[in-house]
Computed example of a mutant assay.
Amino acid sequence: MLQEKQKEGFNQMLVYIEACHSGSMIDFLDNTWRIYATAAANSKENSYAVYCLLEVYHTCLGDGYSVAWMEDSDVDDVTLETIGTQFDRVKARVLTQKTISHVVEYGLMDIKGSMLSVFQGPEGKSLPRKKETSARATTEYETMSQDEVEVWYLKGMVRRAKLGSVEREEAQKQLDDVIAHRKHVDQSVVAIVRAIVDGQSNDTNATTCSQVLKGNTKAYTWDWKCFKGMIASYQAQCGTLRLYGKKYNQVFAKLCDIGISPKQLGVAARQICLPHLVNPQWMAEDKAGFYENPYV
């Protein structure tokens, strides 16, 4: 998409990305692109939710990185603040939020010298905010990994529901299902990768299971047909990945890059995700947002 847009002739582009492992979406950018992009976390880390007040809101109100750059833009004069200055401020603020994510930057670094107003518009477009809003540390509120938010929310539902009530029973069932599904995804992906990669060959140059799972090879692929097929093959045998399982997208991409096909993954998945080990609900769930198998 970016390649096509650049061919169409945009001058320069500023991109902010808030997502777990979001650095993996932009780490191919270098100074040959007319794009400067920053992301909430590197390719191996989750991003973090902030303004989490369970007893007041029963949810988290923002994402640490997005809150940091948007509040900075709101309270400072964007005609006087450079993109580079904002990046330094946002990176420092995110690191003070009791998180372990690191804001990253890629692309054309010359853009960092431009004023924010070049990309965000002149000052005055946003509603005025008090200066102390940005200075108020988000550490006054609970901060947590995006992966933890769903479990944290469901635990709160269980705790707030009356003991013995239908509401509490239903909340507990949802919580148990989420925890069981996450365990299933974690264990099945690891087992599939081990079965495929460790069984490749005795070649000392072969990629190891550990390298695929821990991110010691590049995190993206240009073979989209293979990538989509990997996800579809997994879900056909092991059930939907859900949002939690998307953290393994990098693993599927790496398998493509080392020459593994979706068919090979499907064979391994069929042996590991035996029908009696997979909750029928996970197989029947709507897989909207995921990919159909282009190989079928």
Rank of each mutant, 00 (worst) to 15 (best):
F119K: 09
L53W: 02
V158Y: 00
K155G: 11
K7W: 11
G289H: 14
T138P: 12
W33E: 15
E55D: 11
M283K: 08
Y36D: 01
L163V: 02
W152H: 10
D27P: 08
T204E: 03
E18K: 13
K246N: 10
S233L: 05
K44N: 13
L274H: 14
R34D: 13
V149H: 04
D177K: 02
Q6D: 08
A161N: 01
V251T: 14
G164D: 07
E55K: 12
H181M: 06
T38Q: 11
G239A: 04
Q97W: 09
K112T: 14
Q271T: 10
G259K: 04
L2H: 05
T82F: 01
P275Q: 09
L54H: 09
E148W: 04
P275H: 04
A284D: 15
R136D: 02
Y57A: 02
N11E: 14
V166M: 08
T38P: 01
A180R: 12
R182E: 12
A135L: 07
V67K: 05
D27Q: 06
W222Y: 13
H276E: 12
Y51V: 12
T133L: 10
G259P: 04
D77I: 08
L116V: 09
V94L: 09
V267I: 09
I111H: 00
S114I: 06
V185K: 03
A39V: 13
F28A: 08
K44H: 13
S261I: 12
I26V: 04
S261M: 07
T59D: 07
V251R: 09
D203G: 07
K125R: 15
G84Y: 04
S47F: 00
L127C: 10
M1R: 11
M1L: 11
A19P: 10
M144K: 07
G199F: 01
V149I: 15
Q271Y: 02
A236M: 01
L61D: 00
N46M: 00
G199R: 10
E140W: 11
Q187N: 08
V166G: 06
Q6L: 08
D177L: 07
T217G: 02
A171I: 09
A137K: 11
M230E: 02
T208E: 11
D72M: 02
G23A: 01
D198W: 12
G229D: 00
M1W: 07
A135R: 04
E132N: 03
K214Y: 11
K131Q: 06
I260P: 05
G23C: 04
D30I: 15
